[in-house]
């Protein structure tokens, strides 16, 4: 064991990893990848959903609250951002984005209230209310959609300091910026006293309380911050990936997807959010291309999508039983073995 991992000072490894990631994200990728497809269909949704997964991770992986309804908070963020840009003249994009997160956070507190009374599967059902309520509210009151009757509203262009960011690469860069900042903040919270309090509530709430942790404040804080991340992710998702605002895009299936990303990626790790999101997004793409290129379309698309579901289901069960820390832990173990062998 290293004895010098006093975290506040990032270790040398942390900094090297970070610089390496930034180098790849800001230089290698923009230089080598030209195809818009990669940005619009893979990198952009990956980063958006990874951000939402961090939100899910905070409430579930760290604070141990089995919440299901990330997509509802994403919808809140997305429509908040749309309305802010629509109704507040000259509002800077990043201000709108942060406010959208805060509005989602308010919903997070509201729908986190059941966590003070119920837990486990009951909480899961209770938090589903957020999913249905938020989407219903947006549908019900025309104001949120600016009385647009078509049902699909085009998202405004992202304009930052007079420059519009509309090409796939430009939008990708905006997202990399937001995701990097929010990930760093999440890592700081997770490693600091904030995250410790969450984990204490997760592991043994009565002891946490006896040490002076307020369960009420800590749980609602986790719900609020989680919803903030989901809200920002939802706004980015709508503005860069969907390029439109439609409540149906934020259905319960998306909430489940985010839940699975966190479980497969690994509960209680920030990196797990990214790994899980990559896996859930890329696996179907991979499966499709295997179907097309190896079996030349001989396998029916519906079968492929069934295979996908079965594989996800089996993996989730396997991970829940054998490796609750998910792929992030698996990856660490592989690296560790690799280092030992050398």
């Amino acid at each position: 064991m290293k004895s010098n991992n006093i975290f506040m000072e990032y270790t040398k490894n942390d900094i090297i990893n970070f610089l390496l990631l930034m180098f790849v994200a800001l230089l290698i990728i923009p230089i080598t990848i030209e195809s818009g497809y990669w940005y619009s269909s893979i990198l952009i949704p990956w980063l958006c959903l990874a951000l939402a997964s961090i939100g899910q991770q905070i409430v579930m992986g760290y604070a141990g609250q089995l919440a299901l309804g990330a997509a509802g908070f994403m919808a809140a963020g997305a429509f908040a951002c749309y309305n802010l840009i629509l109704r507040v003249p000259d509002i800077p994009f990043f201000v709108a984005l942060v406010l959208s997160g805060l509005i989602a956070a308010a919903f997070g507190i509201l729908f986190g209230l059941p966590s003070l009374r119920v837990r486990g599967i009951y909480l899961m059902v209770a938090t589903l209310a957020s999913q249905f309520f938020i989407v219903w509210m947006i549908d019900k009151f025309g104001w949120f959609k600016n009385y647009d009757s078509s049902g699909i509203i085009t998202a405004q262009d992202i304009v930052i300091m007079g420059k519009s960011f509309t090409s796939p690469l430009e939008m990708y860069l905006v997202i990399v910026f937001v995701v990097t900042v929010l990930t760093l903040l999440a890592v700081n919270m997770a490693r600091g006293s904030t995250g410790r309090n969450w984990m204490a509530v997760r592991d043994m709430d009565i002891a946490a309380e006896s040490m002076g942790i307020s369960l009420l404040r800590t749980k609602l804080q986790a719900f609020a911050i989680s919803a903030f991340y989901c809200g920002v992710a939802g706004a980015l998702f709508a503005f860069t990936y969907l390029k439109s605002l439609e409540p149906v895009a934020f259905d319960i299936k998306l909430s489940f997807k985010i839940l699975f990303m966190v479980i497969l990626g690994g509960l209680g790790t920030i990196s797990g959010a990214f790994i899980g999101a990559a896996f859930i997004l890329l696996f179907p793409v991979l499966l499709n291309s295997v179907g097309n290129n190896i079996f030349h379309g001989a396998i029916d698309a519906t079968i492929i999508s069934s295979i996908e579901q079965v594989v996800f289901g089996v993996l989730i069960i396997i991970f829940m039983i054998y490796e609750p820390l998910g792929m992030a832990k698996l990856w660490d173990n592989i690296i560790l073995k690799f280092k030992k062998n050398n």
Binding site: S193, R196, N197, M199, A200, A207, S210, M211, I213
Partner: peptide
């Protein structure tokens, strides 16, 4: 025993410092 099982020994003891930390 009501420890925080998945947290390290140091982190468990740090929770004891909860009321001395108010950032």
């Amino acid at each position: 025993l009501a420890l925080f099982k998945r947290m390290s020994v140091l982190d468990n003891i740090l929770i004891g410092r909860r009321l001395h930390m108010n950032a």
